[in-house]
Simulated scan of single mutants.
Amino acid sequence: MSDANDDTQNYALGAIAAVVALVIAGVLTLAISRSGAPKAPAAAAVAAAAPAEAALPRVYFEVDSDALPADAMDVLNRVADAARANPGAAVLISGFHDASGNPEHNADLAKRRAQAVRHALEANGVPAAQLVLDKPQQTLGGGDPREARRVELKVQ
């Protein structure tokens, strides 16, 4: 009878040890991701980041326009709320453009779109010191044409 109790006790201890190991692994993973773990090579980073990028708040603009679209306010309000709730966080603002047409015009348009988003966030109570404009980025193409007319926001 003692052997059956020992087996049950060993099984229970093993199960507890497994749960503790999973919790520790989760905490370590979270700590590493927040500490800025070393980055993967560029190609792997782009491939690995693709699903996460889909979750980033985005504002989509009309063709050849830097005017904020009417539907942008919901996204901008959510980002402003998150930024005001975390005064130590920076809001990275990235404008995108495609490779068609004049590259200088496209990069300037992407920059003006990002600036329009920055001004809207400032008007919504986000301090200018929290807002960081990223260099305009060119889309890789092959997808939805709207993606070349977007501004992405990341609270970090």
Rank of each mutant, 00 (worst) to 15 (best):
Q9Y: 06
N10Q: 13
N10L: 12
Y11Q: 09
Y11I: 04
A12E: 14
A12T: 13
A15I: 11
A17N: 08
V20A: 12
A21S: 12
A21D: 04
L22V: 10
A25C: 11
V27W: 12
L30F: 09
A31Y: 05
S33M: 02
G36S: 03
A40V: 00
A40R: 05
P41L: 09
P41V: 11
A44N: 08
A44K: 09
A45R: 06
V46S: 03
A48D: 11
A54L: 08
A55K: 15
L56K: 05
V59E: 01
V59K: 03
F61T: 03
E62L: 00
V63E: 12
S65D: 08
D66A: 15
A67S: 13
A67H: 14
L68M: 10
D71G: 07
D71F: 02
V79A: 00
A82W: 00
A82Y: 00
A82L: 07
A85N: 09
N86K: 10
N86F: 02
A89V: 02
A90M: 07
A90H: 12
L92A: 11
L92K: 04
G95I: 00
G95P: 03
F96C: 08
F96A: 12
H97N: 01
D98L: 13
D98C: 11
S100I: 05
L109T: 01
A110F: 03
A110S: 02
K111L: 10
Q115I: 10
A116R: 02
A116H: 01
H119F: 11
H119T: 13
H119A: 14
L121Y: 00
N124F: 03
N124R: 15
A128N: 14
A129E: 11
A129Y: 04
A129S: 15
Q130K: 12
L133G: 05
D134S: 14
D134H: 12
K135L: 06
P136A: 01
L140F: 09
L140S: 10
D144E: 14
D144A: 14
A148I: 06
R149S: 02
R150P: 00
R150S: 15
E152H: 11
E152A: 11
V155T: 10
V155P: 00
V155D: 02
Q156L: 03
Q156T: 03
